[in-house]
Amino acid sequence: MALVRWEPFREIETLQRQMNRLFDEFLPATTENHKLTSFMPLAEMEETGEAIHLRLEVPGMDAKDLNVEVSADSVSISGERKSESKTEEKGMTRTEFRYGKFQRVIPLPSRIQNDKVTAEYKDGILNLTLPKAEEEKNRVVKVSLG
């Protein structure tokens, strides 16, 4: 029979890891699991010869709660999300609230005319049409072959 040295600090570290794992699974506000409570609008970008089309998904928000700022080379969207869900089943009512501010800055692949941007917000989707600057439309790049 071999003797095994008892190390109390190793036991404490094991217990701490197990407790951290338990809290990470059940408390969504922890920093490692922040994606459950924070909100970042999803974006889709399409570039054509004339403009950049940007679609942002911001469900459950009113247009008045959004702030969109456009510079010549980036788009910044910010706002505050206030969400409430309520379910009733078997005589029980469950209500959940989500609040929080968000901001997302999206760099653009080409310079745009930020004074001619158009926006449409419908069904939780924000559509931005960002016309390209004239010098970007006519830009031709020479490619060397050796």
Rank of each mutant, 00 (worst) to 15 (best):
S144V: 13
L27E: 13
V75H: 02
R94T: 11
S78Y: 06
Y99Q: 01
Q113M: 13
R17H: 10
D115C: 00
R81K: 15
S78V: 05
N20H: 07
E57C: 02
A29E: 14
K142L: 12
E136P: 03
L36W: 11
R104G: 02
I112F: 07
H34C: 01
V143L: 12
A63T: 04
P28N: 09
M40S: 13
I77H: 01
E47Q: 14
I125T: 15
L56R: 00
I112S: 06
P28E: 09
L54V: 05
S110R: 11
K90S: 10
L27A: 09
E136M: 06
L42T: 08
E80F: 01
L27N: 15
T129P: 03
F102W: 07
E57Y: 11
E135G: 04
L128T: 06
Q16I: 13
G91W: 09
T87M: 15
L126G: 05
I125P: 04
A29F: 11
E13C: 07
E7A: 10
N114Q: 12
E46S: 09
F23N: 07
V117D: 06
T118C: 05
F9P: 02
T14Q: 14
N127C: 04
P107W: 02
V141W: 06
E44N: 10
G49I: 01
V68D: 01
L126V: 10
M61L: 08
T31F: 06
E13L: 15
S83D: 09
I52R: 01
T129I: 14
V58Q: 01
V70W: 01
T95L: 06
K132I: 03
V141R: 14
N127D: 13
R111M: 13
H53N: 13
L108G: 02
A2I: 09
L3N: 13
E11T: 08
G79N: 00
E96G: 00
T118D: 07
L3D: 14
R10A: 15
A72K: 15
A2K: 11
N138L: 05
T37E: 01
I77G: 00
S38L: 05
A51H: 09
R21L: 12
P28Y: 05
V58A: 11
L126Q: 08
A63Y: 05
K86Y: 02
V141M: 10
R104W: 03
E46C: 06
L27T: 11
L56V: 00
T118Y: 04
M92N: 10
S71A: 15
F26W: 15
R17E: 12
G49Q: 08
S83Q: 12
L126T: 08
V117F: 05
M19W: 11
G124I: 06
E50P: 04
L36Q: 13
A29T: 14
E13A: 14
T14L: 11
